[in-house]
């Protein structure tokens, strides 16, 4: 199973990905993923228990979250894999990523409502259920609240971090791959992309926007590239206040540990893997 750069997908591959997404939405399975993410987003705290954000397990938690989602897509269409969005390369609001045959474009100025593509509210096939405000249609404000996506140079700087993570294992960790990749310190990678897309992607219910999966797939790829250079380490080795150690089970699964998630090649490969 190979995950590909979205820019290289054929028209048919895009159409099948979109169709599988719409089918998960229709059956209600899609919104279970949105709700799970939103619950963790609300409870992950710098000073309390944290798993999906602001924590060393940010990367393995999302790796498993994406795997579950990809498996759900494959129950609909076994040929579908998650594509990734390399935002260091596809940096424009006019990228084919945002075309009407794939994810659709930015929202209108008045209320952020996406008006084009298969996920536009007016299609009647993409109602927003788990949300933070009254808008029941997908919203985006591309490049409005954040002018520029991170650059390849920003990525290289973060991938040069020698440690996986450091104390206090939260958003104030001053170095380490995890916090710099998450974006609370350093050039701001992951967080900045959420803000650049805006609308639902800026909220705790960010998986409402299909681009969530393509963005996090690229974050996952960057983690794999860091591992290829620095080794598949995870810190902390043992549980510390608020955060799980390498062999501790993560919620919501209960039987999945960070070290279970260290080698992505056990599950899939990337088109750029050596």
């Amino acid at each position: 199973m190979i995950r590909k750069n979205q820019a290289t997908l054929t028209s048919e591959e895009k159409a099948r990905f979109v169709a599988a997404m719409l089918e998960l939405k229709r059956t209600g399975r899609y919104d279970e993923f949105v709700v799970t993410h939103q619950e963790f987003a609300m409870s992950d705290s710098d000073v309390g228990d944290r798993l999906a954000h602001r924590a060393p397990s940010f990367l393995p938690w999302h790796r498993r979250f994406l795997l579950d989602f990809e498996r759900a897509l494959q129950e609909v269409d076994p040929a579908v894999t998650l594509p990734y969005w390399d935002w260091t390369d596809d940096r424009s609001t006019r990228s084919s990523l945002w075309a009407p045959d794939f994810l659709g474009g930015t929202g209108r100025t008045s209320d952020g409502k996406v008006m084009t593509g298969p996920f536009a509210g007016d299609t009647g096939k993409w109602k927003i259920i788990a949300r933070t405000d009254s808008r029941s249609y997908l919203c985006r404000t591309l490049a409005v609240h954040e002018p520029a996506l991170p650059t390849a140079e920003d990525v290289l700087k973060v991938l040069a971090e020698p440690r996986y993570d450091v104390r206090p294992w939260n958003s104030s960790s001053s170095s380490g791959l995890r916090n710099l990749l998450e974006g609370w310190r350093g050039p701001n990678l992951h967080n900045r992309v959420h803000v650049w897309v805006g609308g639902h992607m800026a909220t705790g219910a960010s998986p409402n926007d299909p681009v969530f999966w393509l963005h996090h797939c690229f974050i996952d790829l960057l983690w794999a590239q860091w591992q290829a250079e620095h080794g598949a380490s995870y810190e902390p080795k043992r549980r510390e206040p608020g955060v799980v150690g390498a062999a501790d089970a993560m919620k919501p699964w209960g039987d999945v540990t960070p070290q279970d998630m260290l080698d992505h090649r056990a599950f899939y490969t990337y088109d750029v893997d050596e």
């Binding site: 992951h190 967080n191 803000v195 909220t203 705790g204 219910a205 960010s206």
Partner: peptide
């Protein structure tokens, strides 16, 4: 906040 979850 829950509305701007990726900014402080």
């Amino acid at each position: 906040t829950s509305v701007n979850h990726y900014q402080s």
